[in-house]
Amino acid sequence: MNLYTLRDLSKRYSRGGEAVTIFEGLNMQIAQGDFIAIMGPSGSGKTTLLNMLGGIDRPSSGTIECQGERIDNLSEARLSKWRAAHVGFIFQFYNLMPTLNAAQNVELPLLLTKLSPKQRKEHIATALDIVGISDRAKHYPRQLSGGQQQRVAIARAIVSDPKVLLCDEPTGDLDRVSADSVLEMLQLLNSKLNKTIIMVTHDPAAAKYARRELRLDKGRFIEQESAQ
């Protein structure tokens, strides 16, 4: 079953009065439960594509459907609600709120739901437990290592149980050991919780954790089977 369907997708922007095309006429389908690594040279449009899948950027033309619903033409307000309900983001630099502790950071997406404080607490505990960082719930980001911060960010991304996790270079700021640990975590979320994961990475070793690798080059996809 397809989660995403991209049809004839194009992205252009103007730089210094000159029109720049990132990609043109891109077609793609992403199945529910897939784990895709998108690779490619800088400027190939990997992150732009990820942004469009997450509803934080819009295509210049073409359509994006998620579970049969077009998201490319939703209003800003509806898109905010859609993101809150369907997508969990994991960023290279974690994007945690420095003034909130780990549990409070994880709680943020739940504030957009109708859950009671008690239910929110339960969800937070579960999410922190899944990523193995329950003992750091009261720690602030500055008190955590990079790997631990990324685990908190993963907990925040999964706490509201979204269908898809969009990861932008999730291990780009981590050492190899921490990176492997985070990638194993993503693999686990994909295999055990059936989360669809789309990960942009420069790192071939990271890409190996995905079910399939897609190389975006000159506006076209070249598929490679993952070693997984």
Partner: peptide, 14 residues
């Protein structure tokens, strides 16, 4: 700006 954008990405409204 970075924090606000993150909150917006998570689903917080403008």
């Amino acid at each position: 700006v970075h924090e606000i954008a993150t909150l917006r990405a998570i689903g917080f409204s403008g």
